[in-house]
Design a protein around this nucleic acid. Structure first.
Length: 735
DNA sequence: TTGAACTCGGTTTTT
DNA sequence: CCGAGTTCAA
């Protein structure tokens, strides 16, 4: 590898640094991933470090995958180090050594929904008022403690922590243990505990990972920091890379002091600054810099670039959120017409809820998109149900899963029976799972219920045999079929259920893909993957698609063209941060992160009115917009005839938005021309009407919901069954 | 016990 | 607007 000359002086220093701690302060787009990947490659190829002695930690799976990809490419080999998130790395460590903490290695990982369920049950069992102790808030507080490395025994009552909370927290930990389950926070914290209590194990892992690299270091929380310090041990071959201007996870316990105090904890640390930006146009970089420079609490630095000025930043105000979505879509169509690569276009928003409108519009126009995050595939009801069957098979102690699936699909085992069996499990000191078996072989249930319970227990036995003998994908199919789950959905007339069937098919292919990629993988491996790898690539992998995501998930990525939508006070900056200076500064950093993702073209959009909570809200433009110097901005006007809404038309008409081009955004003076929107109720009374859809063919309208632009119809198509469609976009024709 | 019809409360960001 | 929880009839 002789490509050091591709790197600038500072980057070279970082790559060449040998043993001992290294802190890299890397501004946005300054090539930090490049530095990390080159450094890894160099350690292995030039310094003779063996790849399994290196651990690189990133914040998202996406980032981990990308980094692995680049290292593989750089080295021309598949023998690359472990590159993963903190959580995955800890999962791996614990899978091997958790017995030392009294858990079984078949432990499950609870997501926050699971934890909340557990907490809720527990709060009820303690006879506490759910109003005074809301599971969600308690869960958040527990998570907060875990992020700071605090288990219940470490919370002294002299602090603000009240006794009740500590009690609940302790009970919660106990429940987790009973279920042989860990929550997200536990993954880090229990690993720390493992190391603290087992010097031999710590030594083993220190020896295993002699070289550590941590990306997005500004977002580590104290527990994670503790973990790194433990692993780094006396060798201190620790390289961390971060940027205080991109710290956007303080709400998850990230502590900026981890950067500031690094120099104290690792005396003699080498500090390297990367300040040349290679990513964005000078215009974008200066505009973003101007925004973030308003923050008080920041290390002053100047990012510079040799890139050309490039295009102006386009600032466009739309009348409402739907028009904002429409604008994005037509603009993308125009860009695509000019030959732009859709994979190089991204839309960022502050809250996940904002994706819906965009998705609907994109789907209607047939623009392929990839949604990152959002309602996670694996947390959809039907997917989670199936996963709970699998989890229970792997780990029968998992009460949350057992409770969830015992009556799904409904098999006559209701709340009363569950209560009864729960009692048995307590008095007989057995797991809930075993209590079901016990209950049907005893006289403790009425004969009717006993029959039902027996059937359930038999079902489980059958599945357990399959779990032991068949492949993963066969097992999943058995769960779908033997339980009658799939059948119930297929028989249903609800169009949502039709979608669920499709999602389950997707799950099966995900399982098959997983098995193909990792041939010796077990059920446990799959479940861990599912729990920790949140984003199954949806909507056409690798396809020519634009990307939709929150500003938070955008960190670490870059695109030629970026749309930031919902640039409005109350939404972004979010209203929750209005009376909190630190919170507001974090929002501003988020804005900086978003802007600096763009290489060439940046659109900032705001809507005057927006639907929130189902009510229309009027918002002012984001204060961050005013922090961008005027000379970098051109305000746009939307000149299109936006009142021509596609709707049900007499036969023959095809609605289209194609006749627009990029000129739709033109520089104008300060004044914006806003064309009011026309919204007409299309089919007041159209149930029974026969319609034709471009893709689905002919069908009959069975149901309508909503009004105006939000009007939806359920159409039963003779070929493809029931579908729920948005009238505005469906392009239905009367037959 | 089930499922439909209803109320109520809540939404920032994620591993 | 959405989902979770509750109520009520069968």
């Amino acid at each position: 590898m002789n490509n050091l000359e591709q790197l600038n002086r500072q980057q070279q220093l970082a790559v060449l640094h040998g043993e001992g701690p290294l802190l890299i302060l890397a501004g946005a787009g300054s090539g930090k991933t490049r530095v990390i990947t080159h450094r890894i490659a160099r350690l292995i190829l030039e310094e003779g470090v063996r790849h399994w002695n290196i651990l690189a930690v990133t914040f998202t799976n996406k980032a981990a995958r990308e980094m692995a990809e680049r290292v593989r490419f750089l080295m021309g080999s598949d023998d690359i180090p472990l590159i993963s998130t903190f959580h995955s790395a800890c999962g791996r460590i614990l899978r091997k050594d958790i017995a030392a903490l009294g858990y079984e290695s078949s432990f499950v990982i609870y997501d926050d929904k699971d934890s909340e369920r557990l907490l809720k049950d527990l709060i009820n069992n303690l006879n506490l008022d759910e109003k005074r102790f809301p599971a969600k808030a308690i869960g958040a507080r527990i998570d907060d403690c875990k992020n700071r490395g605090l288990l219940p025994d470490k919370l002294s009552e002299s602090e603000l922590w009240n006794r009740r909370f500590i009690e609940i927290y302790a009970a919660y930990q106990e429940s987790l243990r009973r279920c042989n389950a860990l929550d997200f926070g536990d993954l880090i914290l229990q690993t720390v505990r493992l190391f603290e209590h087992n010097p031999d194990l710590l030594a083993y892992w220190q020896n295993r990972f002699q070289w550590l690299l941590v990306d997005e270091y500004q977002d580590t929380n104290p527990a994670q920091y503790q973990l790194i310090r433990l692993l780094a041990g006396e060798r201190k071959n620790l390289c961390v890379v971060g940027d205080d201007d991109q710290s956007i996870y303080s709400w998850r316990g990230a502590d900026i002091r981890n950067i500031l105090e690094f120099e104290k904890d690792f005396p003699g640390v080498t500090v390297i600054r990367l300040e040349q930006n290679y990513r964005s146009t000078s215009t974008i970089l200066k505009a973003a810099g101007s925004v973030v420079s308003r923050n008080i609490g920041r290390k002053v630095k100047t990012l510079w670039t040799e890139n050309k000025d490039g295009e102006m930043i386009r600032l466009v105000t739309l009348e409402n959120d739907r028009l904002e979505a429409r604008f994005v879509i037509t603009e993308i169509q125009a860009l695509a017409q000019q030959g732009l690569d859709l994979t190089q276009i991204a839309v960022f928003y502050r809250t996940n809820a904002q994706s819906r409108l965009l998705e609907e519009a994109l789907t209607a126009e047939g623009i392929p998109y990839r949604l990152v995050g959002g309602v996670r595939f694996y947390s959809r009801m039907e997917i989670k149900d199936v996963l709970c069957y699998l989890r229970m098979l792997e780990n029968p102690a998992d009460e949350i899963s057992v409770k969830r699936i015992v009556n799904v699909p409904s098999r006559g085992i209701g709340a009363a029976t569950l209560e009864r069996v729960s009692e048995i499990s307590v008095t007989k000191q057995m797991t809930l799972h075993d209590a079901f078996e016990y209950a049907c072989s005893s006289e403790m249930l009425a004969s009717g219920t006993r029959k039902k319970v027996s059937a359930f227990v038999e079902l489980m036995r059958g599945l357990r045999v399959k779990a032991a003998t068949s492949t993963l994908s066969e097992l999943v199919k058995s769960v779908l079929n033997d339980t009658g789950y799939l059948m119930r959905l297929k028989e249903s007339h609800d169009p949502d259920d039709a979608e669920r069937v499709e999602n389950l098919a997707q799950l099966v292919s995900a399982v098959e893909e997983f098995s193909a990629a990792t041939p010796n993988a077990t059920l446990a491996d799959f479940l861990e993957q599912v729990a920790l790898v949140s984003d199954l690539d949806q909507g056409g992998t690798g396809a020519n698609a634009i990307t939709l995501m929150t500003l938070h998930s955008a960190k670490g990525l870059e695109f030629d063209t970026v749309f930031m939508v919902g640039m409005e006070d109350r939404l972004f900056p979010h209203i929750m941060t209005f009376d909190d200076r630190d919170g507001m500064e974090e929002e501003r950093r988020l804005c900086y992160v978003g802007m600096t993702r763009a290489r060439e073209r940046l659109y900032l959009l705001n809507a005057r009115r927006r639907m929130v909570f189902g009510m229309e809200q009027t918002n002012l433009p984001s204060r961050f917009l005013k922090e961008i110097p005027k000379e970098y901005i051109c305000k746009g006007t939307d000149k299109r005839n936006i009142s021509s809404q596609p709707h049900i038309r007499p036969s023959g008409t095809v609605s289209s938005l194609k006749s627009h081009n990029l000129a739709s955004v033109t520089p104008v003076a300060d004044e914006l021309v806003i064309v009011p929107e026309v919204s007409d109720d299309i089919c007041e009374n159209c149930i029974g009407l026969k319609v034709r859809h471009a893709k689905f063919g002919v069908g009959t309208i069975r149901k309508t919901e909503g009004h105006g632009d939000n009007q939806k119809v359920v159409v039963w198509f003779s070929e493809s069954g029931p579908k729920k469609l948005l009238v505005r976009y469906a392009g239905l024709e009367r037959v």
